[in-house]
Simulated assay, not measured.
Amino acid sequence: MDPILPSDSGDSKQPAFLACNGRDGIVSSQRGAVLVTGLIFLVILMLLGTTAMQGTLLEERMAGNLRDETLAFQAAEAALRSGERFLEQVTLPEFNGSDGLYHHADSPAPDPVNWQDWETSGKTIDVTMDGVASEPRYVIEQLPSVPLMGEGGSAQQSGSLLNASMFCVIARGVGGNDVTMVVLQSTYRR
């Protein structure tokens, strides 16, 4: 097929067409370089997307763990305050090793971190916490009495009573799962 060229007669309404077949035209010089380049860009974009997704998932896990730790800390703090309110009673029960009440000489308090009976022993708090795997608990150990030390000494040793009773409140809080655990301790003088 021959190309149609405009005539010399000035008739410009006839279009000029060029024949382009696979053997003689420009099309035969393309070898698929655009396809290979496009595939390389797609692989690079896929790798970037995968890396970004992994970073996002890691940050989400870290945020969840921080939330779980904060929940466990709040539960332990609530148990600690509940134990201190328990000690504000007018009369206290006997500290004999039962019901989470221990005496330093007769029945010392168990190791709070490795103690396996937190779920069944100790005292539970007087309010209910949502979102925790188990209710916060506390134990109280009655410590030796501290004699009056005069004007100086620590806050535990100074005071107006001749013999002040000292107590150690140990509280344990659990977060959203059983693995996250926070143990807090305070010394209470009465």
Rank of each mutant, 00 (worst) to 15 (best):
S7E: 04
G10I: 06
D11M: 01
P15S: 04
P15H: 04
L18G: 02
A19W: 04
A19M: 06
N21P: 00
G22Y: 02
G25K: 05
V36M: 12
G38L: 15
G38W: 11
L39M: 15
L39I: 05
L39V: 04
F41I: 10
L45P: 00
M46Q: 05
G49W: 02
G49N: 03
T50W: 07
T51P: 10
T51A: 14
L58A: 15
E60H: 04
M62Q: 09
L66F: 09
R67K: 12
D68Y: 02
L71H: 11
A72P: 00
A75R: 13
R81V: 05
R81Y: 12
S82I: 02
G83L: 11
F86M: 01
F86A: 00
F86L: 04
F86R: 02
L87N: 04
Q89W: 13
V90Q: 11
L92S: 02
E94Q: 11
H104I: 13
H104K: 12
P112E: 12
V113L: 14
W115K: 06
W118G: 00
G122Q: 09
D126P: 08
D126S: 13
D126T: 11
T128Y: 10
G131V: 01
E135F: 03
I140E: 03
Q142N: 03
L143Q: 10
S145R: 12
L148N: 08
E151H: 10
E151A: 15
E151R: 14
G152C: 09
G153R: 10
Q156V: 14
S160K: 06
L161G: 03
L162Q: 07
M166S: 10
F167G: 07
C168R: 15
V169P: 08
R172L: 15
V174I: 11
G175P: 06
N177P: 00
N177V: 01
V179A: 15
T180Y: 07
Q185I: 05
S186V: 00
